[in-house]
Every structure is written in C-alpha cells, then in structure tokens.
Design a protein around this nucleic acid. Structure first.
Lengths: 247, 247
DNA sequence: AATCGAAATTTGTGATCACAAATCGGCGCG
DNA sequence: CGCGCCGATTTGTGATCACAAATTTCGATT
C-alpha cells in the first residue's frame, strides 16, 4: 500500500467534493442554474472557496459558465455522449491494457471481491450502491496501471458522464452482461492478456454509453434521470457539522 | 467559420493565459517555486485572480502544489513523459481519425499552408516560431474533428509536455521527417483515409516524445531545456499596460 | 564550526466589501 | 393581451484583510 497521501482538508477541497458527489449522484438537474452565493449558503461557507471549487469544475467540463454570468449544469446531447464514449474507450482501454501487465494475484482477488459485492447489491436492487461499486471496480482496476495522469484525466471524464448513468437503471442493467464480463476482464488481467482485457472493457463502456445515446430525443437532447427539483431561492440553513453536502 | 466565440476578458483568464504561455515557452524552470504574491506582483493584479488561475493549472497538472504550501513547476521524469506520450497517442490519434471523415478541401489547403509556413520558419532557424507553428498545425487539424471535449483534454496534455519540447531543438528537429510526414497526413485526411492519417500522426508524436524520454538521466529525471533563472525575491514592477506577461 | 531551536517572515486560506454588468420585475403603451 | 422600457435586485469579479501554518533566519549552545 502506498504511504497514505495527506488529505486536503481545505474548504475549497470539501466544496469541490460536495459538488462532485452531488453531480455524480445526479442531484443537480441538467440545465439547473446555480449561483456562488447559493452554494456558499447551502454549505455554510463563504464565497471564496466556492469560487475556486466551481471554477475547477467548469474547467473540467462538469459545470458550464455562460459568457454573461450564470453557472449551470451542462445539458447533455447525443453528440456529447458519443464524444465522451469514444474518449473513454480510448483512455480506459489504454489503462486496462497497461494494468494487465502489472496485475498481481492480490489485485485480481481484490477486483473479484468488488465484482462479487456488486452482484450482491444488484440482487438487492440498491442502485446507489450499485453505481458506487461500478465506480470502485473501474478505478481500482485503472489504479493498477499506476499512471497518475491517466487516472486524473479519466476521473474528469467520469465527472461529465456521471449525472447520466442513472439512465442505465433499471432496463439496461437488467439486460447487461456486466457481471460475467467483469469476471472475464479480471481473468484476462491475471493472465496478463492486455488485448483481451482491453476489448472486454471497451465493450462494457461502449454498450452502456451507446445505450444512453439512444435515449436522445429528436433534437438530440438527453433528459436527466432524476430531474431533481430544488429551484428554491431562499437562503438555506448551513449544513450540520461534519461533511459538507447538498440535500 | 464558427460565429466567433465571445472572448473572456477577465483578469483570471488573462493571468491563466500568461502562465500558460510562459509554461509553454519554457520560461519557468521545472522545480521552480512560485508564490501567489509573486505572480500577482509581476502581473500587477491582486491575488484573487491569480489564485483561480493557478488553481486551475494545478488541476490540469501544469503546476503542482505540495501539501504544505508551495506552488512549483513539476519536475519531469522519463515515466511521466512516457505516460503522457501514450495518452497523447491515443487521444490525438482519435482526433486525427475523426478529422479525416470531416476534412474539406479548404481544411486541407489551410493545413498545407501552415505546414509550408513551418518549413519556412524552420529554414530560418526560428525555433520560437517553429514551435508555435507546430502547435498551430496540430490544433487546427484536431479542430476539424469538431469535438470540443476531446480538444480540451488534448490542450491539457500539451500544457504538461510543453515546457519540455524545447529539448527537441536542434538535434531531433534537424533529423526528423516531420515536414514530409505532415504533408502525408494532410493527403490522407483529404482522402478521408483515417487509418493512415492516424498512423502517421502517432508516428510523429511517438518519435518526438520517445526522443525526449531518452534524454533522461540515470535517475529518470529530465533536465529542462532552458533553466530559466529568475530566483529573485524582490517585488517586481507591474507589467506595462497591455497584455499581462512574464519576462 | 556544526546543530538545534525560537523568533521573524513568508505564504496560502477564507471572509468581506465595493462595483459593474446582467437579470428580473413590473409598469405603461400599443 | 402583447411588447418594450426602466428601475431594483441578483451575481460574478477583483481587492483587501486577518489569521494560522510553514518556511526561513539567525543566534545560542555545545
């Protein structure tokens, strides 16, 4: 295990994490407008750390800032999903291939454990845990490749597709060959068969995002899974002590 | 031509551009420590826009921030260069392939013009213009693919390799097959032959970065091309009116 | 002369404020 | 009932300040 990296405890970092989590969980409706002061009020901090956190998310494409002055969650279109799909195929395929060369027995065992846990939560119908486990499986796998920059870039891409992965439930997930595919991926990794692992991984990602792209309407727009309301204007009360979070 | 996007005139954006340009041109020595107040003083602005610009560059990997408190230009290692090489091969190959399907006669003519201008400045031995033209060629080409997210991610990667491309001069450049290769790429694009264009482009990028990786010393560290000094501590005078810039 | 520790300085962080531009509200005119 | 205009409000931007943590400086001690 690596010598535990020191955690960033700054408010900026906590605000960033809160926004990222809310985005990933689909708690913001695409197109929803947010203001610095609203976020600051919700999280009980001043505008300064909020500005830096939001600015970073804008740079990563998770928020968009119109030239005038408004921060909003980007609307997803079929073209954008397909673009993200192809980028993810290239990079996550690369990470998988590189991971194959470095996979140890411990790595494989760990991945199998996660895949098994995923099947368990799926059997319970717990979609929140389901998505969490999927993410854990992918990033644990990519971490094997030991390529920090690649991991960072992939993380940025997940931030953009994140809000729309709820659309996979329940139809796509029910019919997906995900569980068997994941086991095949682990098997290929352990055999150091990078080409097979890469192909299977790309199939997994490609199927899911192609499905999401197919949900677009005639204009190519994709509706969010959970059109979280929260259009309220009033200054909300600060979060309770502990982790900063959105409702 | 697209309807000219409105330019961001904020100080934050200008500071970001200044730092990016300085980084790209190799005006900062790797390992060099910078402080918010130093940058703010040099550019004649307050700390606020500097913080946001630097934070963004940190998120992009162009600067690194130690957990304690110091901003520095990352040191380059062979492993990091090879990682960046492989990511760039994947993404710029993808962009080239996608561009091939959309290349018009005008696109090809424009690219040929840039390639010709590059040969002209190279004949003059103008390395600054040389690097600028190379960048222009690549990004003009990738822009044809019309994939904004892909373009943004690639831009982030160039920011990290940028400071080290000076190492290509003069040896690698003199022996490189770049000029002919660029013409072959344009030819393939115009023929909508994505596979060939991609292969040639990957050869170009791969050769250059593999060469840079080969310059690493025994510990795997790569020395900067121009170890720009500037270790001075004194508060410098603000930039003259006009564009913000570093010496 | 080398080393350790405390004082002085530097530096990032977060909060607050003034300001201008954009947005929103409602009123009046058609 | 629709449309445009003007005032009130909202909102991002940039500057400034206090503060704590980290770094550096420098003198005392061995």
């Amino acid at each position: 295990m690596a010598p535990k990296a020191p955690v960033d405890t700054s408010l900026r970092s906590q605000v960033y994490d809160s926004l990222r989590d809310a985005l990933t969980a689909g708690r913001f409706a695409p197109g929803q407008k947010l203001s610095f002061r609203f976020i600051a009020g919700t999280l009980g901090v001043s505008m300064t750390p909020v500005r830096e956190a939001v600015r970073r998310l804008v740079a990563e494409g998770a928020f968009e800032m119109r030239p005038n002055r408004s921060v909003r969650v980007p609307l997803m279109t079929r073209d954008k999903i397909l673009e993200l799909r192809d980028i993810r195929l290239a990079l996550e395929g690369l990470a998988t291939e590189k991971a194959a060369a470095l996979t140890t027995r411990e790595h494989a065992t760990n991945l199998r454990r996660i895949a098994t846990e995923l099947m368990a939560v799926r059997a319970r119908g717990d979609t929140v845990a389901d998505r969490q486990k999927i993410r854990e499986f992918h990033f644990t796998l990519y971490a094997i490749a030991n390529q920090p920059t690649l991991l960072r870039v992939i993380g940025g891409l997940w931030l953009q597709t994140g809000p729309y992965l709820n659309l996979l439930y329940p139809d796509f997930i029910a019919s997906s060959r995900g569980p068997e595919r994941r086991l095949r991926i682990v098997k290929a990794l352990q055999a150091h068969d990078g080409a097979t692992a890469q192909r299977e991984m790309q199939g997994d990602i490609g199927d899911a995002l192609t499905y999401v792209a197919g949900l677009a309407d005639a204009e190519g727009n994709i509706a969010p899974a959970q059109p979280v309301e929260s259009k309220r204007r009033r200054r909300p009360s600060p979060s309770p002590a502990g982790a900063l979070a959105f409702a």
